[in-house]
Write a protein that binds this DNA or RNA. Structure first.
Lengths: 195, 195
DNA sequence: AGGGCCATGTAATAGGTTACATGATTGC
DNA sequence: GCAATCATGTAACCTATTACATGGCCCT
């Protein structure tokens, strides 16, 4: 539903090809929205025929040519309209929680490895976000913006979204520790795994 | 993909009709999974024809008859198999984050009301979760289970999932405050709204 | 020679949402 | 009389995932 709008935002931040958008959705935008290249190409085509984006063929050397998309006036208007409409606060959809409650009817100890694996992934994501924060939101640029007294809205807003990702990963890690402690309590024989 | 499995878990916890499942998905199970009654009826029908669940017609007085579903052996086996298979740690999908980054190309102040509305909803959810925690996981039952030395796995696992919901709502509230503070900083004229 | 990255797409299927449809009972 | 709750469903549509498909360049 909001994939179109996520694409508009990304293209406003920087025009690019479908492939580049797919990469961004794996990285920064993927912090809060995911999409595969198939989806992106399909939606881009519809957006193009609706006049929301403009296309420009860019010939390249040593690489296949690409189509660079940028936001057209109609797209900007569509985004603006969406921004002014209220959206439903969304609920989480967490497979792992289903598994945890399901473990009551199976072997809770069998879940330990799985939860540890998830914990590992979230540790890596947190490190990745924090590295991005240091790279993009600390140092001279941040200082000069503050010193000038007029903060850069785009940067500030990107930063607060990133802080949301950091908070989410930290919360998740703490919760997964809670889950692991609970699972250990239910299966006192299991060792706390390898170091 | 996991809707079937969420239904299996819910029916193992307590057999019930499609309607009752839909209600549970609005309440407790809805903390980590959502589904509408149309979806549930469709999936239940498939599960029935696959032999995952058994049906029993229950005549009622003053109410329409209902079909009470319970988990069959094949369903239990399917759940067990799913539990032992790894799943991908999922990413968030947050419309609001798209809006926040999009606000850089529109009026950031216009977002304040929307964020405050979300904050309100999450405050209510947190209160609802905490009330459920007090109702179901404090008092004599909890104490007796601990005293007996052998904790009830089902209760413990339900509780840790609920604690996850609480942690999620608390984290979200703190983040929304951060978002609001950022939006106020970007639009110094705007008053911090009505009390 | 093989793997990975850049770059674009089609086709089939699964999953989810929205709208429509019915009908009895209970409470205000 | 009207709205809400209980109870079940169909149909159309939109969205998302998975698998398949192509092809050149660069590096080891």
């Amino acid at each position: 539903m909001a994939l179109e709008h996520a694409i508009l935002v990304s293209l406003l931040e920087k025009p690019g090809s479908g492939y580049e958008l797919a990469r961004r959705f794996e990285r920064s935008i993927g912090y809060f929205w995911t999409a595969t290249h198939q989806q992106i190409y399909r939606v881009l085509k519809r957006m193009e025929s609706d006049g929301w984006v403009d296309v420009r063929e860019v010939p390249q050397q040593g690489r296949p040519d690409k189509k660079e998309y940028s936001v057209a006036d109609l797209g900007r208007a569509a985004l603006s309209e969406w921004l002014h409409q209220p959206i439903e606060p969304e609920s989480v959809r967490h497979d792992l929680a289903v598994k945890i409650r399901g473990a009551a009817f199976d072997d809770p100890a069998a879940l330990i490895r799985e939860v540890e694996r998830h914990r590992q992934v979230h540790t890596e994501r947190l490190a990745h976000y924090l590295a991005g924060e240091v790279r993009d939101f600390t140092g001279p640029q941040a200082l000069s913006a503050t010193a000038a007294g007029r903060p850069d809205a785009g940067r500030e807003l990107q930063h607060v979204v990133l802080r949301g990702g950091v908070a989410y990963e930290r919360m998740t890690l703490a919760w997964l520790d809670d889950v692991l402690a609970t699972l250990y309590r239910l299966t006192p024989r299991a060792d706390p795994g390898p170091p």
